[in-house]
């Protein structure tokens, strides 16, 4: 029994230790495991309200850092400070201006890091932790700040050109946690188990409703560019905004004449329809209100005109009108009009 008692005690302690550590697992352990991978970045700025700091995360054991492409990197002297306080000069390996991401390189080895290949997709309602140096509060060997929140919704930023001041047009995670602050850009968004989900985005205003957006870029969207930058094979692709067709569509060519655009937001009412035109053949009538171009709402004549700038002259367009209380969809081909004109037949 004398031999057994200590054995008994050990077993009991072991048992409770296991229970105890598992009960404290999830967030506390996740934080301990993630903090060493977060980097505090310092560079250009400090004037005109633009801060000179932001965040980043280590993505390899040789010192590659993933961060946001911003004014902070607009200098030859970018400094990266790790969670343990070690300071390095960081070199810009490359950047993708379309995604607004950049990869830095520091002369460090054996650091803990996020493997982008193991990143996960998350959806609305997922509990997430955001790691970043918001407001530059963490200095030297102080670890970055952690915020707890939820994924608000997964959506795309393609709504309206000019609605968001960023060239990025892909999926984003809108966050229910206040990350829209100086220094957060480039930080890491992880699940409660420490799986990487996204990179915190730059301060961004949603001009569709005049609010600031808290969001992160899903890792899946960045992966290819980051890998190419690391391999030295990255080629800058033009942002999509510059892809206008050589000749874009105008409504008169399909036979639709809108009312004069004199109000702040003139509703696109059809004033009259040209005889023999594709619009007349399709059945569009005067006083119809054009509400949808394709699947997208057109809130005014100006919006309709700017959307049409990206539609090729030859393309077929689907137009939905509001007639009284009815929504009617029409398909307008260029073919009819073009063919008829070419053949020279009387209208």
């Amino acid at each position: 029994m004398r031999k057994l008692f200590p054995l008994l005690c050990c077993h009991c302690l072991f048992f409770f230790a296991i229970l105890g550590s598992l009960a404290a697992a999830s967030i506390v352990d996740t934080i301990d495991q993630v903090q060493p991978k977060i980097v505090k970045i310092y560079g250009a700025g400090g004037l005109h309200g633009l801060e000179a700091y932001q965040s980043g995360m280590l993505i390899s054991s040789e010192g590659h850092i993933l961060t946001a492409l911003s004014h902070v990197l607009d200098t030859d002297y970018v400094t990266a400070v790790l969670a343990d306080g070690r300071t390095f000069e960081a070199k810009l390996l490359g950047a993708d201006p379309r995604l607004e991401v950049a990869v830095l390189k520091i002369d460090a080895a054996g650091t803990s890091y996020f493997d982008l290949g193991k990143a996960v997709k998350v959806d609305a309602g997922t509990l997430v932790l955001a790691f970043s140096n918001i407001f530059g509060v963490a200095q030297g060997n102080e670890p970055a700040s952690v915020q707890k929140g939820t994924i608000s919704v997964v959506t795309r930023l393609e709504a309206r050109r000019g609605a968001f001041e960023t060239p990025y047009r892909g999926p984003i995670y809108v966050l229910d946690v206040t990350t829209n602050n100086s220094g957060a850009a480039g930080g890491a968004l992880v699940t409660r188990r420490g799986e990487l989900a996204g990179m915190l985005g730059k301060e961004l205003r949603n001009t569709l409703n005049n609010t600031w957006l808290n969001y992160a870029l899903p890792i899946a969207e960045l992966r290819q560019s980051v890998d190419e930058i690391r391999a030295g094979k990255f080629v800058v692709r033009e942002p999509e905004t510059s892809r206008k067709p050589r000749r874009s569509l105008d409504l008169p060519s399909r036979g639709i004449m809108l009312i004069p655009d004199v109000l702040q937001r003139t509703p696109p009412y059809v004033d009259h329809v040209l005889p023999g035109s594709p619009a007349q053949k399709a059945g569009i009538r005067p006083d119809d209100l054009i509400v949808l171009l394709g699947d997208r709402l057109v809130a005014s004549c100006k919006v309709l005109a700017s959307d049409l700038e990206y539609v090729d002259y030859e393309d077929e367009i689907k137009v939905t009108v509001l007639r009284g209380q009815q929504l009617i969809e029409f398909a307008l081909h260029a073919a009819d009009g073009a063919k008829t004109l070419k053949k020279g037949q009387p209208q």
Binding site: A159, R160, A163, N206, T207, L208, N209, N210, L263, Q264, R265, T266, P267, P268, L289, V291, L297, V298, A299, S300, V303, L322
Partner: peptide, 20 residues
């Protein structure tokens, strides 16, 4: 809810065109 037309601004207040 999506709306068509209406005012863009009243005084210094700018109204968004986005859905509600």
């Amino acid at each position: 809810i999506e709306t068509v037309g209406g005012l863009e601004r009243v005084g210094e207040m700018l109204f968004g065109t986005g859905p509600t």
